[in-house]
Amino acid sequence: MPDYTVSHLRQLESEAIYILRETAAQFERPVLLFSGGKDSIVMTHLARKAFWPAKIPFPLLHVDTGHNFPETIVYRDNLVEEMGANLIVGSVQEAIDDGRVVEEKGPNASRNFIQIQTLLDALEKGQYDAALGGGRRDEEKARAKERFFSHRDEFGQWDPKNQRPELWNIFNGRMSPGENFRVFPLSNWTEMDVWQYMKFENIALPSLYFAHKRDIVVRNGTILAVSEFVQPREGETVENRMIRFRTMGDATITGAVESNASTMDMVIEEVAAARETERGNRADDKRSESAMEDRKKQGYF
């Protein structure tokens, strides 16, 4: 009797490819959200596999907060060129300049909330009916109940009490005009799975994910990289430490961890031993118990 056991990574990969193809087939104008973070890098890799030898049948959309690590943008542009993909950039800075959104004030202001409006604007402008995101259910408890095909009303809102049941591998992407979907092919992946898969598939990552020396400040317990967007405040001292990032987001709120993990294997070991979630360092999630659910209802990923 031959052995037809399929490893967990291959099963997750196959499931994600299935979802990506369903998205291409069920929607008129899908788009893949690309943040430069590791999850969206894995998503892009899976999308290439799903449609190979053809090019991916949808564009990439980057919602740019303007607070980027330069490494992210270099990586993004190289990847887009290599794939021959079409990249669309939705700029939060432009939305601020046009007066479509008002930036938060105060010392802990973040562009996280106004990023939602920029995303919704970009989706509307491109008339995209499905936006593929790298969100995972293990990231945050409001996400544990998210669907693969997540329905949004004409205001882009998520209604957690009124989600469509998903059985077997049948996904219902039918909708009325003006509505749209968020699609999460990595729903069943954990942070560990993502790292293992990147190693398995030899996926190159931006250098920020590996340990390096960098000037930082510690603010409210979070290690922030000093940059043009993060300058030391009174009472804060700039230190040079060995750090790496576990997630990639707006540079003003994405916390680093102290680490010596400079290779993929060392990172995997570190993730296995970690006692804090990767979003544990995201100031945006710490605002309240339901911060993520509230943002998702507004249209956030």
């Binding site: 259910r137 408890k141 996400r143 009490k161 989600q163 069943n188 339901s290």
Partner: peptide, 22 residues
């Protein structure tokens, strides 16, 4: 596991929650 505000308020699980461990 009860991640949604309504679930915490009512102290019940409403929806299917997916959890992961290895």
């Amino acid at each position: 596991t009860d991640g949604l505000r309504a679930e915490r308020e009512q102290g019940i699980t409403i929806d299917v929650a997916y959890r992961y461990f290895a």
